[in-house]
Amino acid sequence: MNKRFLYLLLLPGILFLAAFMLIPIMLTIASTFVQDGQLTLEGYLHFFRDGYFNRILFTTLRVSVVTTLVCVVLGYPAAYYISRTSARKKSILLALAIFPLLTSPVVRSFSWMIILGKKGLLNTFLLSTGLIHDPLEIMYTPVAMMVGLVHLFLPLIIITLLGVMENLDYELVLAARSLGASSFTAFRKIIFPLTVPGLIIGSILVFVGSLTAYTTPALLGGKERVISTFLYQNAMTLNDWQAASVIAVIMIVITFVVVGLMNKWANRLNPKG
């Protein structure tokens, strides 16, 4: 193989990403440690001492954790059903899961504004049945964000799990059954343990996605801030670039730590190594 040829193929992409992604990010990271020409951690300390920021961080984590859990609870059985159904049904359901994934997040979050709003579909329905007498205040709360995020990421965990379940050798289940296991026992002892690595990967995708999502919290969260809308507010409304950069670095660190840890865990659980 010709080395020069290899460089010719790879270098344009490398240079492009270096100039327009790597270097800007490095510079952003570096800038958070410098204030008035001095090396300092003040930028970070300031944030973690600030109750408001801690509250936002806590809300973000809480919303992301709940979103991930709900996605797992809704997505796992659905993915299992899809993986076991007939080929025809499978391709239809797969298409129906991929469609929302490719649809604009603005459209998807907007749809929940129609449903969850004060005069929205849900309130209209509940009021008309007499179950409630005053409209529920769901819109612009963490609950609204969570519903929107679940809707946003549910397809992702379904198709991720589906990928794992499709690769599962169904003969393992037959083997367990022939050794005396009921279908439920076969599921519990064979299928579930073997899909845990996929479940972890799917959960990482949902968790990190929820943690960093912007559109849905911006539309459904109102004044309720999460870390990504807080970054935007600092950068664009308050013009506090130092603060925005610190938030950006915190987001990068959280993302990489979560992805790194969960990947390690998933790899350890994966018997194929």
């Binding site: 037959l174 059954r177 022939s178 064979i190």
Partner: peptide, 19 residues
């Protein structure tokens, strides 16, 4: 049902539980 038959089955793919 399969699990009540008490037959041993040896698969072509072995179907050993990998975990």
């Amino acid at each position: 049902p399969v699990n009540k038959r008490n037959f041993g089955f040896v698969f072509q793919s072995y179907a050993l539980f990998p975990h």
